[in-house]
Design a binder for these strands. Structure first.
Lengths: 152, 152
DNA sequence: GCTTATAATGAAAAAGATTTTCAATAGTAA
DNA sequence: TTACTATTGAAAATCTTTTTCATTATAAGC
């Protein structure tokens, strides 16, 4: 499932004339597997472990490329707004653990009524919406906030 | 109404030991009146017209102070995440014009059912949520995207 | 009104994040 | 194997934000 995603992303990169290089393999694999949003610095730190010569610039460039292909999406959080996670299929929303950062997707189909109400009250024509929920994931609830398990 | 807000903010600043200075009067007045979110640069540019010696540093410091008093709140948008607008009363959400940036508030009471569903499906304990709608305000619909009227 | 303590200011420097430039490297097609 | 050129990392440049610090100015006490 995740492995397929890695292959699909690499295929999509190649399909638009991009070359498959060492840095890209590593970065695609990390991003396709990540269960939380990573910013350029975090991504660089993780990827450097397996590819020590990796430059931060290549991380920025790869993120830009993957985002323009809609393979990853930017995630806004109170403390960081330049983090990326795999883009979801269809119209989904994010549920983020405010402790460990783990991300899950959910659909928000029941939003239509609210959108129509707001359109009528405001006179705006609504074109898009952002919905994100923040909370504690099951693991962090169990830990009762004693420790945080980050990427490893 | 807006004038009251200016007075209230100044009072709140004074109440916590802050001094009322030229830069603060200007910045409070602009922020309390603004109908769209402003980032430090925009705010500095606008305020400088009335207070030419104003330093950008004071803008940062005042924003920080006002945010810590919950008088303003940060607004996340696709292109800018460091913009601020007056904080609303109670639990409200934002409706932003994707053309001119004008902001309106609305309540999203009908969100409770969705939150409970997601909690059950995910096992997360939801603590907070962000909901923002993007669209065209009535004025920008009328202009049909011919021109953008920014702050003036 | 005058004095005084100190919060607030702006300039400059420092720190961080992101983008640009450029010569060297390395995919990929022929 | 060769040739083309996309990609790379280092360094420089650009922006944004924070820190430092001497100076200024608010507000309280007299």
């Amino acid at each position: 499932m995740i492995e397929e995603r890695v292959q699909e992303w690499l295929g999509r990169l190649q399909a638009c004339g991009c070359r498959l290089t060492g840095p890209r393999y590593i970065l695609v694999e990390i991003l396709a597997r990540a269960d939380r949003a990573l910013n350029p610095q975090e991504l660089h730190a993780i990827a450097s472990q397996r590819y020590p010569s990796l430059g931060l610039v290549s991380v920025y460039r790869t993120l830009e490329r993957l985002e323009s292909l809609h393979l990853i999406q930017r995630v806004h959080q109170p403390d960081k707004c330049q983090a990326y996670i795999a883009a979801f299929d269809g119209h989904q929303h994010l549920l983020l653990c405010s402790q460990c950062g783990r991300v899950r997707f959910f659909d928000g189909d029941e939003l239509g009524g609210l959108v129509r109400r707001v359109e009528q009250e405001s006179g705006y024509r609504v074109e898009d919406h952002w919905l994100q929920l923040f909370g504690l994931c099951d693991q962090c609830q169990a830990l009762q906030g004693n420790e945080v398990v980050l990427y490893e």
